[in-house]
Measured scan of single mutants.
Amino acid sequence: MGSVRTNRYSIVSSEEDGMKLATMAVANGFGNGKSKVHTRQQCRSRFVKKDGHCNVQFINVGEKGQRYLADIFTTCVDIRWRWMLVIFCLAFVLSWLFFGCVFWLIALLHGDLDTDYKDDDDKSKVSKACVSEVNSFTAAFLFSIETQTTIGYGFRCVTDECPIAVFMVVFQSIVGCIIDAFIIGAVMAKMAKPKKRNETLVFSHNAVIAMRDGKLCLMWRVGNLRKSHLVEAHVRAQLLKSRITSEGEYIPLDQIDINVGFDSGIDRIFLVSPITIVHEIDEDSPLYDLSKQDIDNADFEIVVILEGMVEATAMTTQCRSSYLANEILWGHRYEPVLFEEKHYYKVDYSRFHKTYEVPNTPLCSARDLAEKKYILSNANSFCYENEVALTSKEEEEDSENGVPESTSTDSPPGIDLHNQASVPLEPRPLRRESEIGSRR
Results as ranks from 00 to 15, higher is better:
Ile302Gln: 03
Met24Ala: 13
Asp348Ala: 00
Val403Pro: 10
Phe143Arg: 01
Cys101Thr: 09
Asn259Arg: 11
Gly176Asp: 05
Lys125Gln: 12
Lys215Ser: 03
Val93Ala: 05
His234Asp: 06
Asp263Lys: 08
Ala181Arg: 08
Leu324Pro: 02
Leu390Thr: 15
Val337Cys: 10
Ile164Leu: 13
His205Asn: 10
Asp112Glu: 02
Arg432Glu: 15
Glu394Asp: 09
Arg432Val: 15
Gly414Thr: 12
Val202Ser: 08
His353Val: 00
Ala207Cys: 09
Thr74Tyr: 10
Pro194Asp: 05
Asn259Val: 08
Arg268Asp: 07
Asn297Gly: 08
Leu109Ser: 15
Glu387Leu: 02
Asp348Ser: 00
Lys227Gln: 06
Asp78Glu: 12
Thr316Asn: 13
Ala192Ser: 06
Ala298Ile: 09
Asp416Phe: 06
Cys162Gly: 00
Pro413Phe: 07
Glu307Gln: 07
Lys50Met: 02
Gln42Cys: 10
Asn28Phe: 03
Phe352Thr: 00
Val208Glu: 00
Arg44Glu: 14
Asn360Lys: 03
Val278Cys: 11
Glu400Val: 08
Lys215Trp: 03
Trp83Met: 06
Thr200Met: 06
Leu338Met: 12
Ile59Gln: 15
Thr317Lys: 05
Ile375Met: 09
Asn198Met: 13
Tyr344Met: 04
Gly223Ile: 08
Thr313Asp: 13
Glu400Asn: 06
Asn224Leu: 11
Phe47Gly: 02
Thr361Arg: 01
Glu16Trp: 03
Gly29Met: 04
Ile375Ala: 12
Leu216His: 07
Ser127Asp: 08
Trp83Asp: 03
Gly214Ala: 13
Asn28Lys: 06
Ala129Lys: 07
Tyr9Ile: 14
Phe137Lys: 03
Arg8His: 07
Pro359Val: 09
Pro359Ser: 10
Thr159Asn: 04
Val187Glu: 03
Ala107His: 01
Asp78Gly: 10
His38Glu: 15
Pro359Ile: 06
Leu338Thr: 13
Phe99Trp: 04
Pro412Glu: 14
Lys196Pro: 11
Thr23Met: 03
Phe30Asp: 15
Phe73Gly: 14
Lys196Phe: 12
Ala237Ser: 09
Ala107Arg: 00
Gly414Phe: 07
Thr407Ser: 10
Trp104Met: 10
His38Arg: 09
Gln293Ala: 10
Val388Pro: 13
Val37Phe: 05
Ser3Ile: 02
Gln293His: 08
Val86Arg: 03
Ala421Ile: 13
Glu387Lys: 02
Glu161Gly: 01
Ala140Trp: 00
Glu247Cys: 11
Thr361Pro: 02
Val102Thr: 08
Ser45Asp: 14
Asp416Tyr: 05
Leu201Val: 07
Gly31Lys: 09
Arg428Ser: 11
Ser381Pro: 09
Tyr117Ala: 00
Gly52Val: 00
Arg212His: 12
His279Arg: 00
Gly223Leu: 06
Glu301Gly: 01
Ile179Ala: 05
Val304Ser: 14
Ser14Val: 13
Val77Gln: 05
Cys76Leu: 13
Glu63Gln: 14
Ala107Gln: 04
Ala140Ile: 00
Asp254Phe: 06
Phe99Gly: 01
His53Asn: 04
Trp220Thr: 08
Leu230Asn: 11
Ser144Asn: 00
Leu85Met: 06
Ser285Glu: 01
Val347Ala: 15
Lys20Trp: 02
Lys190Pro: 12
Asp299Gln: 07
Leu240Cys: 11
Ser399Pro: 08
Lys128Leu: 15
Leu113Ala: 10
Glu249Thr: 12
Met191Cys: 10
Gln148Phe: 03
Met219Asp: 00
Ile258Lys: 01
Leu239Ala: 01
Tyr384Asp: 09
Ile184Thr: 05
Asp119Phe: 11
Thr149Ile: 02
Ile277Val: 08
Arg226Cys: 14
Leu329Ala: 05
Glu394Phe: 04
Gly111Pro: 01
Phe141Ile: 04
Arg46Gly: 02
Tyr9Arg: 13
Leu201Asp: 06
Ser406Gly: 11
Asp116Cys: 12
Lys215Arg: 05
Asp267Gln: 12
Ala25Gln: 15
Phe382Ser: 08
Val48Cys: 11
Val235Lys: 00
Arg243Tyr: 14
Met211Gln: 15
Asp120Trp: 00
Val166Met: 11
His343Met: 05
Leu338His: 12
Glu335Arg: 02
Lys193Asn: 06
Asp17Glu: 10
Thr317Val: 14
Val303Glu: 02
Phe352Ala: 01
Ile106Glu: 06
Ile11Leu: 05
Asp119Gly: 00
Ile87Ser: 15
Ser381Val: 07
Glu15Trp: 03
Glu340Asp: 08
Thr75Tyr: 05
Thr23Asn: 11
Met191Val: 10
Met168Arg: 00
Phe300Asp: 00
Asn380Pro: 09
Glu340Trp: 09
Pro194Trp: 04
Val304Gly: 02
Ser365Ala: 05
Tyr345Asn: 10
Phe300Cys: 02
Glu397Trp: 06
Glu357Val: 08
Asp348Thr: 02
Lys372Ser: 13
Tyr349Thr: 13
Leu225Ile: 14
Thr355His: 03
Arg236Tyr: 08
Arg40Glu: 15
Val303Arg: 02
Asp416Val: 06
Tyr334Gln: 00
Arg46Pro: 03
Ile436Val: 13
Cys162Tyr: 02
Leu290Ile: 10
Val187Ala: 07
Asn55Cys: 05
Cys43Tyr: 08
Ser365Met: 01
Lys195Phe: 07
Trp81Met: 07
Phe270Glu: 07
Leu94Trp: 02
Phe352Leu: 06
Phe167Lys: 00
Ile244Thr: 09
Glu405Ala: 08
Met168Trp: 05
Tyr345Glu: 03
Gly261Trp: 11
Val303Met: 10
Ile79Arg: 11
Val260Phe: 03
Tyr153His: 07
Ile179Tyr: 13
Leu253Ala: 10
Asn378Tyr: 04
Asp267Thr: 07
Asp122Met: 02
Val4Cys: 05
Ile266Asp: 14
Lys373Ile: 10
Leu417Gln: 11
Phe141Asp: 00
Asp122Asn: 03
Glu161Phe: 04
